[in-house]
Design a binder for these strands. Sequence first.
DNA 1: GATGAATGAGGTTTCATTCAT
DNA 2: TATGAATGAAACCTCATTCAT
Lengths: 188, 188, 188, 188
Amino acid sequence: MARVKSPEKRAAILRAAVRELANSGLGAPTAKIAARAGVAAGTLFTYFPNKQALLNELYLELKGEAYARVNAKFPGKGSLERRARHIWSSYLEWAIEFPEKRKVSVQLNVSDVITHDTREKTAAAGGAVRQTLSELDRRAALRGLPAGFASATMSALQEAAMEFVGREPRRRKHLMARGFQAFWRALR
Amino acid sequence: MARVKSPEKRAAILRAAVRELANSGLGAPTAKIAARAGVAAGTLFTYFPNKQALLNELYLELKGEAYARVNAKFPGKGSLERRARHIWSSYLEWAIEFPEKRKVSVQLNVSDVITHDTREKTAAAGGAVRQTLSELDRRAALRGLPAGFASATMSALQEAAMEFVGREPRRRKHLMARGFQAFWRALR
Amino acid sequence: MARVKSPEKRAAILRAAVRELANSGLGAPTAKIAARAGVAAGTLFTYFPNKQALLNELYLELKGEAYARVNAKFPGKGSLERRARHIWSSYLEWAIEFPEKRKVSVQLNVSDVITHDTREKTAAAGGAVRQTLSELDRRAALRGLPAGFASATMSALQEAAMEFVGREPRRRKHLMARGFQAFWRALR
Amino acid sequence: MARVKSPEKRAAILRAAVRELANSGLGAPTAKIAARAGVAAGTLFTYFPNKQALLNELYLELKGEAYARVNAKFPGKGSLERRARHIWSSYLEWAIEFPEKRKVSVQLNVSDVITHDTREKTAAAGGAVRQTLSELDRRAALRGLPAGFASATMSALQEAAMEFVGREPRRRKHLMARGFQAFWRALR
DNA sequence: GATGAATGAGGTTTCATTCAT
DNA sequence: TATGAATGAAACCTCATTCAT
């Protein structure tokens, strides 16, 4: 039987990609990524057909990881506010814990390398989150705002919150709480 | 005296850069930018010493243009809400009118090509906006939020609002108004 | 393991570099060197990190080759004159046999591309030659001439001799002998 | 009447060329030469049809200057040794006084930019020097050395002497005298 | 499957020279 | 004549991808 593609190597490549992309932007050479992952330049292409595919898979991975955080211990039966707060906090904690991952995720998001297909997949991975956010949307709708506005607002405000937590890590808890308050009021 | 460096050509290059960058990301070749601007490849480098400089100047130009929009007809003596609403609307209108400019501006912003120096210059160009936003900040501070949170929130929510206006251009007026309402409530 | 970096290819590149540099000076394009070596333009850079490095390694190679000639059959136990004559003749023969190599070596020498480091390495490669030349120097010192003058004089006179041997190859033996005589008398 | 080409500008360009070429080698850009000369890039080409012509004229100029030094106060009626010593010293003094000029002269000499025509012109400019050197050659010929060997030897030994004078400028007089002694003995 | 040398298209930038002013 | 902007060929080098080992 032939050797089998090792999940460890695949993971190492993705990990290395995060580091390199965070440092050098999307132009980071595949050779450097491979080197940091401890594999040969060519090996990268047995795990990913080309760079674009690598970037798309990385994007999925990052989004998936963030969603996993949110879904863990999700208070499925809590009030809408309780659930929204959970989403707010758990995602924010992930982003703060892994600033490089978040940075790369943002860069990939605004770039043109992410295919429509990939975007659909991440949307699908929403799970419990989607449900909650659409409930919020329905509330927002009463106020004449379109579907999706709630989640867009949340991520927009999280963006803002993150920057400040980055500057004053000590006040993290406080800033996260206040940030959520602002969010909640925005949609009230 | 010989031919004089023409502001038109400079402007054409910047205009072409917006188009190319919007289409192909920051990796867009200088040769293509020059071609679209109707000048020779080498000419680009008589107007900008290198690609990085071009991108930085472009960023300044875009930010400057947006600020100019906001500063025009700024109701310097209006209430805080009035002034905030003006900033909200006028910037949003610019962004909606020139989606490519906005896209490129965002891409430049998250990339690493923008120097510290450039960022300082854009900050300095704030003018009337800064004054208003810092008033907002002082209010926000009462709510335990850090300095700068107000403007970060505004631009984050504008980001969200833009997306929706893009999808439903007909409801532009309505969405802009509602979006501001959300913003205003967030900071109450 | 993948293909292994082939010494033949490296040698072919250096050989091609000699030809191209002899023809077109130090400005000879790396692309032409690669083409003459029968490799792709990019391949040159897997053997040498950049053009300057290529030129420095070439210089080392040429100097090394010349020294190897001299060191072969070096009459380590002969009289000072005998040893000096050997150096004189064997180097000269090399230079006459490979005029392009010598030309390139001279060009590299007066240019600014050769690093201090490279110069030190060639000096270190001197071996038996250095020993003999410093003996000569000690004799020269008696005549009030500074250390290093002997070897400088030798290479300077060889330079002159070479030109004439080039013009009248038939009288090579004779000219080499007379040239050495002039050298020997200069330092008596 | 049209403006006339100013000899001052021509001279300034040649002067600037020496500086630039000494610093950056023959690849020094014409634009930098022009800038250092205080003229516009294009002006350079009204004084010299192209770069190669500039380099050739510069070579002539440098050789001419050196010859002028030698011809001044030439002891036309002195003994052969007296005349040879004058050539030796006066050229050496020039070379020591203007190290950049000498460096550039050497670089031009080994390069391929100097045309056959230019070389003939410099040879022709020899004047009194040629006469003396050919007398030396006739003496050398008795020793079985070819025509031209005397002058080749002289410039070769001067090359060596210069290096050492450069290192110990204080002993200039002494080194020049001893160097000539070595030269004289070589041909004795 | 793993390796890394080989490839060559393509990127940025330089520069001699031209030419409108 | 003087200027310096404009030109575009060409230089060096990078890099995604292929493929012999």
